[in-house]
Amino acid sequence: MGKTKLLTKKRKQFIWRFWGYLLLPVIAVAIWSTQVGAAPIAIMSGLGAVYMFMLAPVPCGAPIRERGRDGEELYCRRNARGILGGCNQNRQHGWANAKLLASRSKWGEFLRRVLADGKGFAASVSALATSGATIIALGALIVSLLK
């Protein structure tokens, strides 16, 4: 009877790809615990926000040049890294998403495309939660340092 490895190559790849989501319950427990200070919460939630915005697997959603049968605009369906990034196959898609966020009138279109898919929805909600936790923890850290 041989040894079985706890962390196989496949499990290591899974953990490496989704470490930001695995960090979310740790952040939640740290927030509700009275033993953890504001600095570790700010660091963990900041790392979680960076993961969601730059590394989380989400659909690209950038507009493409082709049109649908009824003339509507079509969007890229490839996998992307992060809410703000585009797909790896086309560098222009990352810039297309950035242009949408730069113009305030296009925010609704950007959110509609990101929230249409389950992975994009999970990344968006998690990015909002970790960003809020980062801001609150940094505020608490500043207040505690000023006392």
Rank of each mutant, 00 (worst) to 15 (best):
S103C: 07
V26S: 04
F121L: 00
V143Q: 13
M52W: 03
N79H: 09
A122K: 00
A116L: 03
G120C: 00
G61R: 05
G139F: 09
S33D: 03
R17A: 13
Y21H: 06
P40C: 14
N79M: 14
L23Q: 05
G86Y: 02
W32S: 12
G2R: 13
P57W: 00
V143A: 09
R112G: 00
I31K: 06
Q35D: 12
M1I: 15
N90C: 04
V143E: 10
I136Q: 08
A30M: 13
A30E: 06
L146P: 01
N90Y: 05
R104S: 10
Y75L: 01
S131G: 14
R17E: 11
V29T: 02
S131Q: 03
L101W: 06
L111C: 08
D70V: 11
R112P: 01
R69W: 10
Q92W: 07
Q13F: 09
N88C: 07
K3I: 15
W16V: 15
A30I: 09
K5R: 14
A39F: 09
A127G: 09
L22K: 07
I64F: 04
I64D: 08
P57H: 02
A133N: 06
G118L: 06
G118P: 01
L101C: 08
L101P: 07
E66K: 04
S126F: 01
N90T: 01
T8A: 07
R113K: 09
L22S: 08
C76S: 07
L84P: 14
P40G: 12
R91V: 12
R69E: 14
I41S: 10
N79G: 08
A98L: 12
G46I: 05
G82D: 05
K3G: 10
A127F: 11
T34E: 11
R77G: 14
K147S: 15
V125F: 01
K106P: 10
G139H: 06
T8I: 04
R17G: 08
S105E: 07
R78F: 08
L84M: 12
A80S: 03
V50Y: 15
L146F: 14
L22Q: 03
A98V: 10
G61P: 00
C87P: 07
R67T: 15
I142W: 14
M54K: 05
R113Q: 12
G82T: 04
A127V: 05
R17P: 02
G118S: 09
I83Y: 02
R77D: 07
L138V: 06
Y75A: 00
L84R: 02
N79K: 12
L111M: 10
W107D: 13
I27S: 05
Q35H: 12
L146Y: 10
K99L: 11
A56T: 01
I142L: 12
S105K: 15
G37E: 07
V143S: 09
P25I: 01
I142A: 12
I43S: 13
S126T: 02
G86S: 04
S33C: 06
S105G: 08
G108A: 06
A102M: 15
T8D: 15
A39H: 06
L22H: 04
L6W: 10
Q13K: 15
G2M: 12
W95P: 08
K9D: 15
R78S: 14
G120D: 01
V58F: 02
S124T: 03
G120F: 00
A56Y: 03
V29I: 11
L6I: 15
